[in-house]
């Protein structure tokens, strides 16, 4: 009997291995899809269309409590808080909340806020039309900023949910901060 072609076999083995290497990376979009379509958790996707939000019918008969939680990562020297920690809104009504952030350090820092909604089954029904978390925030040394969040709770929010918590965590964006420091340095000798 002929010797089977082991090199072909080895090649096949390596192709499978390479496939799984790629699969490791593909897991990221796959998990995101699973999250949204199987488990019903909305991952952050930026602003919803303002018109669509305005078109929702306001449910005057129902009041939902929205709580705000603010965190900063220990390495970020910012003070960050919500002006009101909780408010009552009618589903379908466009509402607004304000947040304050202060850079208490001596250097300019770029930060990013990561939002999260609890309970996570409510995340599908929580729509933001405007948020400071959609973009990087640059705070110069000592600078304070008032930042709005405009949102509307979808009237289809399941009846058993009466309280939503919106949490923000601010993290230092190391890469953007470093770039900023470099460009500041480059600009300094010129001026």
């Amino acid at each position: 009997m002929m010797r089977p072609n082991f090199y072909l076999l080895a090649k096949k083995g390596w192709m499978i291995a390479l496939g799984f290497f790629a699969f490791g990376f593909a897991l990221i979009p796959l998990y995101n899809i699973a999250c949204e379509h199987v488990l019903g958790i909305k991952l952050e996707q930026g602003a919803v269309d303002g018109d669509a939000a305005a078109a929702m019918t306001v449910d005057e008969s129902r009041l939902v409590t929205v709580q705000f939680v603010t965190n900063t990562k220990s390495k970020l020297p910012w003070e960050f808080s919500a002006e009101k920690t909780s408010m009552q809104v009618h589903p379908g009504a466009l509402s607004e909340a304000w947040f304050d952030a202060t850079n208490v350090s001596q250097r300019d820092i770029v930060g990013n806020a990561v939002p999260s909604v609890a309970p996570n089954s409510a995340s599908l029904y929580f729509n933001k039309t405007e948020c400071f978390c959609f973009t990087e925030q640059l705070l110069k040394a000592g600078e304070t900023r008032r930042m709005p969040v405009r949102f509307v709770v979808d009237p289809r929010l399941p009846k058993d949910i009466s309280t939503l918590t919106l949490a923000y965590t601010f993290l230092e964006n190391d890469i953007a901060t470093k770039k900023l420091a470099e460009s500041n340095q480059a600009a300094a000798p010129a001026s």
């Binding site: 083995g13 291995a17 390479l18 799984f20 290497f21 790629a22 699969f23 490791g24 897991l27």
Partner: peptide, 9 residues
């Protein structure tokens, strides 16, 4: 073969 490449990734 299935999981070592995932760790590598």
């Amino acid at each position: 073969i299935a999981v070592m490449p995932v760790l590598a990734g």
